[in-house]
Design a protein around this nucleic acid. Structure first.
Length: 270
DNA sequence: TAAGTATGTTAAG
DNA sequence: TTAACCTACTTAC
């Protein structure tokens, strides 16, 4: 379930559970070859930038870089020496809790220079309280690329994935195909501040909920919905269903090889 | 048993 | 633009 909120939540959980504690580090699957260089060290700090996680350890200049890709994830469980279930790339335990990482695109030990290089190619992150959205606004304002494509470009805004993209464009009533340069001057600012709120909710709740109180099934007098990905949303993967606002049907299309969901009737703003 | 799918990214053509 | 890669789970045959 990895959009930016998942990684920030994971960084927080690693800090809460493991910071300052010496950890056992192994690679049950054998594919994280540097796991033993971490074994026995104390975790000093886990940080997230967009969808990237960096984990630092005492006495080690390098940091572990993790990217979960499409379906990677970390599970925490009480106990140690637990049986290995499935493919576990990296296992950490502090003597009482075990964390297992499965299915990441990246799990590697990187030099400070390599870490800087990754961070340098990422845009501002709505989950970073000190982030400056101006560089992102400038990129959008100069681009002929559709706003829906720009929002998934991690060098423009870091951490937005396919769900937040579809949902923020619906909430702001923006036509996904409008070129960035054709958006009204205030529109990107509204997108950014909505992302700041939505993604902070995502970190807090551990799921993506985007439906405003006035549009919940209860408020609308409709039966409750269960979305397979676990959140309450307006458009993501609701193709064929009626729009929660106007009742017409959602459209779906492929844009830059990702599924896009939107309602043309509600999303006309530029 | 095989195929398809998923909140992602990179490299090859 | 396409294929490849990482894993688990569901659906089709």
């Amino acid at each position: 379930m990895p959009e930016g909120h998942t990684l920030h939540r994971l960084a927080r959980e690693l800090n809460e559970r493991f910071a300052g504690r010496p950890l056992r580090s192994t690679s049950p699957q054998g594919r994280f070859v540097s796991a033993d260089r971490i074994d026995g060290r104390r975790l000093t700090r886990a940080t997230a930038h967009g969808k990237h996680l960096f984990v630092a350890f005492e006495g080690l200049a390098e940091q572990v870089h993790v990217h979960l890709g499409l379906y990677g994830g970390v599970t925490f469980a009480d106990g140690t020496d637990l049986p290995i279930v499935g493919q576990v790339r990296w296992r950490l335990d502090d003597g009482s809790t075990t964390a297992d990482l499965r299915g990441p695109t990246a799990c590697e030990l990187l030099t400070p220079g390599e870490v800087d290089a990754i961070r340098a190619r990422l845009g501002p992150d709505p989950l970073d309280p000190g982030a400056d959205p101006e560089p992102a606004a400038r990129r959008v304002a100069r681009s002929r690329t559709p706003i829906a494509t720009l929002l998934l470009d991690q060098s423009v805004v870091a951490g937005v994935g396919n769900v937040y993209r579809a949902e923020v464009l619906f909430r702001q009533r923006i036509d996904p195909f409008v070129p960035g340069r054709d958006l009204a001057p205030t529109t990107f600012g509204a997108v950014w501040s909505d992302l700041v709120d939505l993604m902070a909710d995502g970190v807090r709740l551990g799921r993506i909920d985007t439906v405003r109180p006035e549009h919940t099934p209860e408020a609308m007098g409709r039966p409750p919905r269960v979305d397979d990905h676990g959140g309450e949303v307006y458009v993501y993967r609701r193709d064929g269903a009626p729009c929660l606002v106007c009742g017409t049907r959602i459209r779906t299309a492929t844009l830059a090889s990702r599924n896009l969901f939107w309602w043309p009737r509600c999303q006309r703003r530029r």
